[in-house]
Simulated scan of single mutants.
Amino acid sequence: MKLSAHCDCYADNSYFLFNKKNQIISFRIHSTEKLGYFLDKNPVIGEPFVEFISQKYVKSFSDLVAECFEGKSFNIENRLKVQDKEDVLMQVVLTPVFTGPDQEFVACTIIDSNRKTNQMKLLDEYSHLASHDLRAPITNILSLSSMLNYPEMDSLDTSKIRELLTDINFQAEKLDDIIKMLNRLINKGEATKEFAGEATVIDSKHIMLVDDDSLTNKLHHMIITKHNKNKRVVQFDRPLLALNYLKENHPDLILLDLNMPEMDGWAFLRALEERNIKIDVVIISSTIDPAERSRAQSFKSVKDFLTKPLTYDKIKHLVDN
């Protein structure tokens, strides 16, 4: 095993590995921005740590390393005052590493505690939203939908059923807003890019739906054909069957889901490229992850990225002449 493997669990931080002569034999610097307050210069393999660690820390650091070679370990957190800037919170972990007789080393890991603290705050906030705000509309939807099974429902007129469905829809919209909020929270600083697709698809008379959810396919089929009776719409809940269909058929447009168990949307897009099948594709997905939208733009066949639920207004420019 490589000695650096002992520090791989700290891959998102900086680490140094010293031998008995206090010489550095391995290191990784994750970020020099805040580590600069701890180091006087960049380290070099083979030189003693006293050459690059800030002089005001050399004495105490040397004493701790010496104790580590005797089998002790240390976890020290220190707040550094920086003029005109936010205090830097650094955590230094010193651990003895014994790989064999006469093979003794000390691993020093520098952890950015500010980043760690911010991550914990983010997780706490995310957990609160998920366990409290998210649960409320879900339980309301479950309660409202369960009413559809009551025997009394048979005697309700259309207006009462519409009222019930309106209540369910309102709770679903609240749920959707909370999920979007959670996504924004976890993707702070990463803006959702507008899809840089090509021009509107023209004269899409033959449309293929590929989604493992058969209910989604039926709803999309209904939306498309309700106002476009001249459209030929074929639907597949198994991507492999859709690929077989493409051997002898050439639809004008494919509406493709991403999250499918047998073959996900990304694998389906790669299969189109490998088979040199040139058909315009529009992603229809429930995801609101900005990274997924950016990834979709790497496929030439993908012309747009729409977020579920699909509405007639969303697809009018895709299926109309």
Results as ranks from 00 to 15, higher is better:
195 F>V: 03
154 D>A: 09
202 I>F: 09
194 E>I: 05
217 N>Y: 03
171 Q>E: 15
159 S>F: 06
177 D>K: 14
167 D>R: 14
222 M>T: 10
225 T>C: 11
196 A>T: 12
238 R>Q: 13
176 D>F: 14
176 D>K: 08
126 Y>I: 15
186 I>E: 14
184 R>K: 02
171 Q>S: 12
193 K>T: 06
162 R>G: 02
136 A>W: 08
135 R>F: 05
234 V>K: 06
145 S>N: 11
193 K>S: 13
178 I>S: 01
229 K>A: 14
155 S>T: 15
158 T>L: 09
156 L>K: 05
127 S>E: 07
151 P>Q: 11
131 S>P: 02
212 D>H: 07
162 R>N: 13
151 P>G: 04
124 D>G: 07
186 I>P: 00
231 K>G: 13
176 D>G: 10
172 A>Y: 06
197 G>Q: 03
190 E>C: 03
169 N>A: 08
129 L>N: 02
126 Y>M: 07
191 A>N: 14
237 D>N: 14
195 F>C: 06
226 K>M: 07
204 S>M: 07
199 A>E: 08
235 Q>T: 15
133 D>I: 07
214 S>M: 05
189 G>H: 07
207 I>Q: 05
206 H>L: 08
156 L>H: 03
224 I>C: 10
230 N>G: 08
142 L>K: 10
209 L>W: 04
198 E>D: 04
206 H>C: 08
142 L>Q: 15
195 F>I: 07
190 E>Y: 11
230 N>L: 04
153 M>P: 00
234 V>R: 03
217 N>V: 09
132 H>T: 10
227 H>P: 10
215 L>G: 01
177 D>R: 10
157 D>P: 00
161 I>M: 12
187 N>G: 02
128 H>G: 00
190 E>W: 08
188 K>W: 01
151 P>I: 15
231 K>W: 00
231 K>P: 12
217 N>E: 04
136 A>M: 13
140 N>R: 12
212 D>L: 03
179 I>P: 00
233 V>I: 11
145 S>G: 11
214 S>D: 11
124 D>N: 05
180 K>F: 06
153 M>N: 01
